[in-house]
C-alpha cells in the first residue's frame, strides 16, 4: 500500500458547525414534531419522488434542522420542491411527520428570502386570494393571475390556446360561484392573520 502519497499527519480543514438549539426548538414547537428523533436512516430520501430536484435531500435537511442550522436550512430548495406527497411521513420509523416539518419551514421563510420560493409564493397568494374573495377557488382567475405574475404577458399568451380549449369544453367557468357564507370564510382568514 505504499506510494499513495498520503501523509497521515496532514491536517484537513473541517467546517465548524455551531449548533443552534433555540432555533431547532422553535421549529419543533411550531411543527409539533421532534426532529431530534431522526437517526438518519435515509428512508425519507430514498422514498422521496422529488429528491432528484433538491439541493439538500430530506434526511440531510433533517440533520441540519436537528443542529439548528437556520440559514442553511432556510436557503435550501427542499421544501419548495417537496410535492407534499407524504411518503416520508408515512415511512419514517421514528414517527416524524416530515411533510409537516416542510410546511413549517415554508411558513417560517421570509418573503423574498429564498429564490426557490418565488413561484410557490405567487401561487399560494393567488389561490388563497381567490378563496378569500369567493369562498371557493375560481380556477380561471387563479391560473390567469398566477401565469401573469410568474411568466408575464408572454407566458399568459402561450397558455391562451389551452385556456380557450378548456373554455370550449365547459371546463373553465367565466364567473366565480359565490358562497352565501363568504363572510364566514373571510372571518377564518382574519382570525389567522390576527393570531
Amino acid at each position: 500500500m505504499s506510494g499513495a502519497g498520503v501523509k497521515m499527519t496532514e491536517t484537513v480543514a473541517v467546517p465548524v458547525v455551531v449548533p443552534n438549539s433555540a432555533w431547532r426548538r422553535e421549529v419543533e414547537k411550531r411543527s409539533g414534531q421532534k426532529v431530534t428523533a431522526c437517526y438518519q436512516c435515509e428512508k425519507c430520501t430514498n422514498g422521496c419522488p422529488a429528491a432528484f430536484a433538491m439541493d439538500t435531500v430530506p434526511h440531510r435537511l433533517m440533520r441540519q434542522l436537528a443542529l439548528g442550522l437556520e440559514s442553511e436550512v432556510l436557503a435550501a430548495n427542499t421544501f419548495w420542491v417537496c410535492a407534499s406527497c407524504e411518503t416520508c411521513t408515512t415511512r419514517c420509523p421514528n414517527g416524524i411527520d416530515i411533510a409537516h416539518v416542510m410546511d413549517t419551514l415554508r411558513q417560517l421563510s421570509l418573503p423574498g428570502a429564498n429564490p426557490a420560493a418565488k413561484n410557490a409564493a405567487i401561487l399560494n397568494s393567488e389561490f388563497l386570494g381567490s378563496i378569500r374573495r369567493h369562498g371557493r377557488v375560481h380556477e380561471l382567475e387563479m391560473v390567469t393571475g398566477y401565469t401573469l405574475k410568474s411568466e408575464g404577458i408572454a407566458g399568459l399568451l402561450r397558455q391562451t390556446g389551452v385556456g380557450l380549449g378548456m373554455l370550449r369544453k365547459g371546463k373553465l367557468k367565466l364567473l366565480p360561484s359565490k358562497l352565501r357564507g363568504v363572510k364566514q370564510v373571510k372571518g377564518i382568514f382574519r382570525r389567522v392573520v390576527k393570531g
Binding site: A120, N124, L128, I131, R136, V137, Q184
Partner: peptide, 13 residues
C-alpha cells in the same frame, strides 16, 4: 354552501 378546502396552498401558509 361548502367552501374550498384550501388544498396545498393553505397548509403551506
Amino acid at each position: 354552501d361548502w367552501n374550498c378546502c384550501g388544498a396545498s396552498s393553505a397548509h403551506a401558509v
